[in-house]
Amino acid sequence: MKEISELNLPDDIRYAEDHEWARLEGDRIRVGLDDYAQDQLGDIVFVELPQIGDTFEKGKEFATVESVKAVVECYLPVGGEIIAVNTALEESPELVNKSPYNDGWFVDVNPSDPSEMDDLMTNAECLEKLKGAD
């Protein structure tokens, strides 16, 4: 497992308490799982994603991620309608390990309240929190 100093936490995205990330891309928000979470889980073998058109409030469970020996539920960092899902994860769940912020994205959300982004942590805040927990 990575040391905290080895973690990749880009500064162009926001982070939720449960290690989902959110990135504003035009008027949609792309969501995925951060480097810390993928590293803790280890080899990811299955990602269960919602369907396009489903809507969730902020903080509601929208996906589950399975590694060989663990399952975690993922909570939507920003409420809204799911407008795209990363179907590549069906065949290649390992993308979440290899490229958590790019090819391993989960869903795109049409946010009902874009300002919910502001409640999320910056990479610096996220790093502080991880250090505190260590």
């Binding site: 080899d43 990811i44 073998v45 299955f46 399975e66 590694s67 060989v68 390992e94």
Partner: peptide
């Protein structure tokens, strides 16, 4: 050691 990730994927 066996590749358990491949088995599950």
């Amino acid at each position: 050691r066996l590749d358990e990730a491949a088995a599950a994927r």
